[in-house]
Design a protein around this nucleic acid. Structure first.
Lengths: 236, 236
DNA sequence: AAGATGCTGTAAGCCAGCTTACAGTAAGGG
DNA sequence: CCCTTACTGTAAGCTGGCTTACAGCATCTT
């Protein structure tokens, strides 16, 4: 059986690589790690569902996770794709501890560590620097939401699709022989959910882009073969 | 000429009634007030414009202010209506101090006090409780944005209009003989901007609601005469 | 009083993109 | 290997709500 110390140092290690906790003093890390847990999920598994009490904050260690809004009629909108190092979950829920309206789903095999919202806040209460970082994190989420809103109101579906692909190429792209490969397995349905459109419309638009030589597909992953052409389609 | 103390206590008074600074120690209030300024604006005046550097945080003392997103083609979306006691402005802008994409306009004669973002953050740095409140504030903005997004994607225009009127009746309503009066002068154009629709469509829908006996208008202000009927129209 | 400016009301026409429907293809699993 | 399930591709039709266009009012200005 492993010693407590070993377990603790393992948890400690878990906190490394998380942007939010960079530059934290080692003894603080040590303390914080006592409140954390490690979890693993397989591709496709749900990490939390709409309606689950929003009392936990998650930090991605490995794999990617998508955050999806689900409405009462089953329509979906994917709000974000989180990458290793990033936190997700609701840090600042309603006064009345209302349940989250989002779900988090593993896009790949995922490793994460989690911490109770109240513990994290109590811990931050005595560490102003961390508190401000939390505020900054929430501020980032806010800005992402704003840009999502901007897209959905002011841009039409073809432009939203082009902008999504351009962003994915920038954020998740790896160089390939034909161009930039988006290192994410995404179905047309998932892309549709990301741009707030339907599967059918998205399929048609993707076919057009393929025929125009802007993109191609290999092993279920998209490759941007003409980044310039794509960028032209990002404007209204 | 007035003494420094008098000026200071006046500024101090300015901080009272602002939710964010409730329960702050008097000496902290005293110090914070040294960084603040008071300003007045008339109905219709701009407080800041898109493109202005986002370095200031505002606290409303009197009157209401609307925050509007303006796109490059002149289309508008009103994101929020702020009321006395509420803060607005961008507390947590991009790393690169990107300029705000919003404008703030006085809906009525307005009194506010303002403080530099950096000063406020430096001040909060040593007061963890305040830092967490800032995070909570940003969290609230985030939730409002989420609900705006939800409306815009999943609900059609008539429902969005009904929900807006219901919300305004709840938040800005005062009892009147015929029903609940919304204590805000709003043109059809402004209502259209609030629900992400056009002036014409909004006019038609408002006329329908009037003909159905759900609302009426007096002195440029709407009165909800049939709250139940309105609530029925809030569902999809 | 006349003119300018901005708000309200109404209506015809149009179109992006959602719906519905179906066929073909890939892939996972027993 | 077959069978089931899920994904992709295509197309006809419909419709919510945006566009465009005007006319009548209400303020405000000088």
């Amino acid at each position: 059986m492993r010693s407590k110390d070993e377990l603790r140092s393992k948890a400690f290690w878990c906190l490394l690589g998380i942007n939010l906790f960079e530059n934290l003093r080692p003894e603080d890390m040590q303390e914080l790690s006592r409140y954390t847990q490690n979890r693993k999920y397989q591709r496709g598994e749900m990490i939390y569902l709409p309606g689950d009490p929003a009392t936990t904050v998650y930090f991605l260690k490995k794999g990617r996770v998508k955050l999806v809004y689900l409405d009462e009629h089953g329509r979906k909108l994917t709000l974000a794709i989180c990458r290793p190092g990033q936190p997700f979950g609701e840090l600042m829920p309603d006064e009345d501890h209302k349940r989250s309206r989002f779900m988090a789903q593993a896009l790949e095999d995922v490793e994460l560590c989690l911490i109770g919202r109240d513990e994290l806040i109590r811990f931050a209460q005595e560490r102003p620097h961390l508190s401000l970082r939390l505020a900054k994190w929430v501020g980032q989420q806010l800005r992402e939401m704003e840009s999502k809103l901007e897209d959905l109101i002011f841009r039409d579906v073809p432009v939203r699709l082009a902008r999504l692909l351009e962003r994915l190429a920038r954020e998740e792209g790896v160089p390939a022989t034909e161009g930039i490969e988006i290192s994410l397995k995404l179905t047309n349905r998932e892309i549709a959910d990301l741009i707030g459109s339907t599967r059918e419309t998205t399929t048609v638009l993707l076919s057009q882009l393929r025929r125009s030589g802007v993109i191609t597909k290999r092993h279920g992953r998209f490759i941007i073969t003409d980044l310039e052409g794509l960028k032209q389609r990002c404007a209204n």
